[in-house]
Design a protein around this nucleic acid. Structure first.
Length: 284
DNA sequence: AAATCTTTCAACCGCCTAAAG
DNA sequence: GCTTTAGGCGGTTGAAAGATT
């Protein structure tokens, strides 16, 4: 009789996280089912995949959803329904799971409330409100409408949401705070994982050198990015504005080494406004 | 201060699809 | 064409944290 492997379940320990992170940064994940074996984890491949995608993968934003993100979700949910992964494509750095949770814990109620008010108004006044955002609009039209509301101003204010009903728990998680991983979006991963639905790292050769050092400073980590796993093979990396200066010198180096222009530095605000992975990530 | 209720969110489960054999 | 395997997705659960009584 073949004894079934007993996989560990439940919350991931920091050690497990480290093992998984280090393994993937070093070797990639050509086959998820082999990752736990190679990484020395007592988890199944699916669990490892989920942990990586939802939590460990670099570039995850985490924390409070901005007003604009909120509206994007509303708008796309109106068009697509519960297609969380498709909605996530339009929110760089957000996972389908995170969006799904946010919807169920907050947005759904808000949407229902809005519907109630709207139907109430229609019932009593026979008109629809003109001072509320119409989530049934296409994202393009919504963007135009948003401009009128000055919603972009809210981006930096999102951390201090004034709405009392807003969930208080959308702060940085404890682990995320401890982590010194940069808030950098790796479009290579995002584009493959989110846009095309493919595996994020295609081969073991795609990652060279060491993984991130959890104890490194932000700048040191950037050095690791350009010199380590991503300097050689990775392209289209999106760097937030605060990193640009540090990165520019490395960029030159990277371009020389690679013989082509790979890296597009994006101003931080762009990440939150009209940036689209499909359309706006480009070779310089 | 303790008990109870509510909310959040990480992780699991099961289904579906595609690819490989 | 059938079976197996792996990856991806959406629904659901349950532990933990927070809020309320």
């Amino acid at each position: 009789m073949v004894e079934k492997t007993k996989y560990r379940k439940g919350l991931w320990s920091p050690e497990e996280d480290n093992k998984l992170r280090n393994h993937i940064l070093m070797f990639g994940h050509s086959c998820w089912s082999s990752v736990p074996i190679k990484a020395g984890l007592l988890r199944n491949g699916k669990s490892c995949r989920l942990r990586w995608i939802n939590y460990l993968r670099p570039g995850l934003k985490r924390g409070v959803f901005s007003k604009q993100e909120e509206e994007t979700i509303m708008s796309f949910h109106n068009m697509l329904g519960n297609k969380w992964s498709q909605i996530a494509h339009h929110l760089p750095g957000r996972t389908d799971n995170e969006i799904k949770n946010f919807w169920h814990s907050y947005l759904k109620k808000k949407a229902n409330k809005a519907k109630e008010i709207e139907s109430h108004k229609q019932l009593h006044y026979g008109t629809s409100s003109s001072d509320t955002i119409d989530y049934s609009l296409s994202p393009q039209k919504l963007a135009t409408q948003e401009a009128g509301y000055g919603l972009l101003e809210n981006i930096d204010k999102s951390a201090s949401h004034s709405d009392n009903s807003y969930p208080q728990n959308h702060n940085f998680s404890k682990e995320a705070c401890y982590s010194s991983l940069p808030k950098v979006l790796f479009a290579e991963w995002l584009s493959l994982d989110h846009v095309n639905g493919g595996s994020s790292i295609n081969s073991d050769e795609s990652l060279l050198g060491n993984g991130f050092d959890q104890n490194s400073s932000f700048q040191e980590t950037l050095m690791q990015i350009s010199e380590g796993p991503f300097g050689g093979e990775y392209h289209n990396s999106i760097i937030t504005s605060s990193t640009t200066e540090v990165y520019n010198s490395k960029l030159k180096y990277s371009n020389q080494v690679n013989g082509s222009d790979f890296i597009h530095c994006v101003h931080g605000a762009d990440l939150y406004s009209n940036f689209s992975l499909n359309n706006d990530t480009m070779y310089l």
